[in-house]
Amino acid sequence: MTALLEVSGVSKSFDGFKAINGLSFSIGPAELRAVIGPNGAGKTTFMDIVTGKTRPDRGQVLWGERSRSLLKLSEAQIARAGIGRKFQRPTVFEDQSVADNLTMALKALRGPFAVLCWKPSAASAARVAELAGDVGLAERLAHKAGELSHGQKQWLEIGMLLAQEPRLLLVDEPAAGMTLAEREQTTTLLRRLAETRAVVVVEHDMDFVRRLNCKVTVLHQGSVLAEGSLDHVSANPEVIDVYLGR
């Protein structure tokens, strides 16, 4: 199986502080992966590098069947290549309606002129309604996103990610601020999504990770400390030492 995303030997330092240090990581086209690690382990920087927000000092980030390097691409180009990212804090456009938010995220040509010529069609309206139904916002399509509750915003953002139809989803702490029931729902969704695409979940919450029941990568000081099932890495003394033990 060829990897969908192949990160090898990546390093990045900020003012001498090595946020990422020789990190290597790879994920297949349909796989669920949890990335855990203590604060400052480089989880966020790792996502920043993959999505093009931060350029690494060294290393390679290769994408897709044709092993295209992502390092030369802008954030928007990487997003169009099929990498979606969900932020820790829900970031939706509060001043626009749920339907507008979803419409904007729908997979379509992204250039300014293509967008100017874009017209809503029956198909696009149906797709928006379907996505809203998926994330439980069917009733609130005409409402402004700012009127939604925190959890609903999380769902809206997930809906927007789905609308993008990414091949790789990077999810930053999805469980934060969710009720138990919502967590359950999220777990199910993530597992379902991972059947057709790659999903990387960055998470603090061990319970949540356990529920995901997937391969786990432990980061520490900017590099991979251990990788395997949760039980496997939990048994690793080093991991216990730096993270789980505390």
């Binding site: 927000k53 970031t91 992204r110 993008q164």
Partner: peptide, 10 residues
Amino acid sequence: TRVRFLGYPV
């Protein structure tokens, strides 16, 4: 930033 991650060339 968010618009960029949606894939739009801002």
